[in-house]
Amino acid sequence: MVLFSCFLVGGLELETDLLTRRQRAIDEGWRGEVEGLDLTLRFLRSKRAQAHRAAATGRVDLGMPALPRHRPGHVRARRRPQPGREPRAQG
């Protein structure tokens, strides 16, 4: 949850800064800059909504992965040498 709350605080500061920069771009007539800032604001808001959804669902327990067990007496098969290649030296 610490990461989520840091994102909200930092996200609000980012959004405020982006809105200020967007207004300046409008005042200066920088259309391309306005479009770029609009896109960035859209991504920021989308990421914030994603963080809200993740915080609402909480943690998910994925459990421990099952590891393959070694079977006693089981020996791995050796590879057959391919034609035209010399077998590797066993070290």
Results as ranks from 00 to 15, higher is better:
1 M>K: 13
2 V>N: 14
3 L>R: 14
4 F>T: 08
5 S>T: 15
5 S>N: 15
6 C>M: 15
6 C>H: 15
6 C>D: 15
7 F>P: 00
9 V>L: 15
9 V>K: 15
10 G>R: 12
12 L>H: 14
12 L>I: 05
16 T>G: 09
20 T>L: 11
21 R>T: 03
23 Q>W: 00
23 Q>V: 00
24 R>H: 10
24 R>K: 14
27 D>S: 08
27 D>K: 04
28 E>Q: 10
28 E>C: 00
29 G>E: 04
30 W>R: 12
31 R>N: 06
34 V>A: 03
35 E>K: 08
36 G>M: 01
36 G>E: 06
37 L>K: 01
39 L>C: 00
39 L>W: 05
39 L>V: 00
41 L>N: 01
41 L>R: 01
42 R>D: 05
42 R>S: 08
43 F>I: 00
45 R>A: 06
46 S>N: 09
46 S>H: 08
47 K>F: 09
47 K>L: 09
48 R>V: 06
49 A>K: 03
51 A>N: 05
53 R>H: 06
53 R>Y: 07
54 A>L: 08
55 A>R: 07
55 A>L: 10
55 A>E: 11
56 A>V: 01
56 A>T: 03
59 R>M: 06
63 G>W: 08
63 G>F: 09
64 M>G: 03
67 L>G: 03
70 H>Q: 11
71 R>P: 02
75 V>T: 14
75 V>Y: 11
76 R>M: 15
76 R>Q: 14
76 R>D: 15
76 R>G: 08
78 R>T: 06
80 R>W: 08
83 P>S: 10
84 G>D: 12
84 G>A: 12
86 E>A: 12
86 E>G: 05
87 P>E: 02
87 P>F: 00
87 P>K: 01
90 Q>A: 13
91 G>Y: 03
